[in-house]
Amino acid sequence: MSENMMRTISMSEALNEAMHEEMERDDRVFAIGEDIARNGGLFGVTKGLLPRFGAARVIDSPISEAAISGAGVGAALVGSRPVVELQHFDFVTLAMDQLVNHAAKWRYMSGGAVTVPLVVRGPIANGVGLAAQHSQSLESWFVHTPGLVVIMPSTPYDAKGLLKAAIRDDNPTLMLEKRLLYTRTGEVPTGDYVVPIGVADVKREGDDVTVVAISGGVPLALQVARKLEPEGIDVEVIDPRTLKPLDLDTIVTSIAKTGRLVVVSEGARAGGYASEVVARVIDAAWGSLRTAPIRVTAADTPIPYAGPLEREVLPQVHDVMTAVRNVMEKGRTQHVAV
């Protein structure tokens, strides 16, 4: 097979390739998590690693999120490059101390004496009826924790390239993957590539409105962009891909052109990442804004089980559509709660 031949694969396949390639390339990389070895992970991200790399490097852990995350920190301190899978990202709550008080700060507290090349990744299973303890988008907690890198990919290409970058990077990195994106397909080249951390991607160019969308927000924004095309509304969709550090330049450049901003994120509204993007844009590009930015986020409720309730609180296509129309039509002082 020639290098860089394009294929269409799913996001979970792309992540799986990243794991295989990085474990092959660097024997310091190992994987640990619940049901990841024999079963290949609930969503197949670690499929085939056990037969290829053996049980010492592909570990079915006890259900002990604090211990596997803490062990990840310890292993990283002595030169390994662990990849810890959380079966659902909600279970990060059990690992919070190890990640927030340890992984994020060990380097700083030591005056730069150590590095913690740890990756912790797992799915956000919102939109499928798994209810409040399995559906949370908790990314803003980690953005709020200096010392951590936070990544949320929306395409197979980005997922693979960013996971490889995260594994090679010397900083503790969290990668939050929307479960409903695992089965979505996209073009991914064969052969090695990385997507640099901290670089946004313009998923669609447009002149009228800048929509900054994260993770599951990206397909929503692209759908809205297509739907509004016939009306002559030209939407630019930017996917930061990395939440921390944020590529503000790409966003500001876009707003210099459009003057309008909508941010789409599936986290809860209060203290959420959308608020952070809006604040950063106001700091950096107030003069370019023609209307007040609008956030499209999940509501400030836990995620309910029943379909009509879950759809009510999570951002939907029509919410993004309304927001885009509003920044197009309304003046600077208009605020729209979604």
Binding site: G129, L130, A131, A132, Q133, H134, P302, P304, Y305, A306, G307, L309
Partner: peptide
Amino acid sequence: LGRKSGYCRGKGGSMH
């Protein structure tokens, strides 16, 4: 089934 008369008014589902 996530219905109105459920013990959690459809908010919890099987696990809650």
